[in-house]
């Protein structure tokens, strides 16, 4: 195991690329960047510029794991092929791309996370939350706004306070709103369920080619709920 602590000259924007191995990032009250790895940390693979951008490239072949501790609110960019990515604590703008790894996020101000075959789980994203998976499931407990797509996994958005766009080919989609926000949901065979806060009167535009959509809210024009499915059940219900 090896470790390294780096002073960060400004607001940290950390870029990490690795081919494999777990990447775990802890955002916490600190001013420096702490790096810990099971493989030797080669300083020539780390570039620090005066603006606070730090680029960390893991050795070719990747490491078994990489633990990073960053200042709270730091921006993060992580790219891996097969590594799982975990983020704990409050981060700033976060962008993660992995081909087959899973992604776990505790808190971010804004998020763009994508994986081909892994799943994505987010606890809290206060701003725009953009999540893309090809075959994995996606869940987000709390989001400012959400733009989410998966091919065959399920999508579960617990509490969204802004607009929502979600689509899945065969997975089911569940959306919970906390305010009057526009929703656009599309599936092919998956079911759709949207929970609307009590007192909000949405304008529904629901279309399922098999089965009658269920709309149990009072109609109005507070927001628009648009849902379309080729064969899935559609439900829009008061929360």
């Amino acid at each position: 195991m090896s470790e390294l602590t780096l002073d960060v000259p400004g607001a940290l924007e950390l870029h990490v690329t690795t081919r494999s191995g777990r990447v775990a990032v802890q955002a916490e009250e600190r001013l420096d960047l702490y790096i810990e790895s099971d493989a030797p940390i080669r300083e020539e693979k780390i570039v620090v510029d005066p603006t606070g951008r730090v680029v960390l490239k893991s050795s070719r072949g990747g490491s078994g794991w990489l633990n990073l501790k960053v200042p709270a609110g730091a921006d993060l960019v992580v790219g891996t092929v097969s590594g799982h990515v975990e983020l704990h604590g409050p981060a700033g703008r976060v962008r993660i791309t992995t081909i087959s790894g899973h992604i776990e996020i505790e808190r971010a101000e804004a998020l763009d996370a994508r994986t081909i075959s892994g799943s994505i789980n987010v606890d809290r994203c206060s701003g725009r939350c953009k999540l893309v998976s090809k075959s994995g499931s996606i869940s987000c407990n709390v989001a400012g706004s959400a733009q989410v797509s998966t091919m065959s996994g399920t999508i579960k958005l617990g509490e969204v306070s802004g607009n929502v766009a979600a689509q899945s080919a065969s997975g089911k989609i569940e959306v919970g709103l906390t305010t009057a926000s526009d929703v656009a949901v599309r599936t092919m065979s998956g079911s759709v369920r949207v929970a609307v806060p009590r007192g909000v009167r949405p304008h529904p535009r629901l279309q399922s080619l098999s089965g009658r959509p269920r709309f149990e809210c009072e109609r109005g024009d507070d927001c628009e709920i648009k849902a379309k499915s080729l064969s899935g059940q559609i439900e829009v219900l008061p929360a």
Partner: peptide, 17 residues
């Protein structure tokens, strides 16, 4: 809008997308 460096299968170096 930058996604950051993305590591893709079969490509030796990460690429900015």
């Amino acid at each position: 809008e930058e996604l950051g460096p993305v590591v893709m299968k079969g490509l030796p170096e990460p690429m900015r997308l």
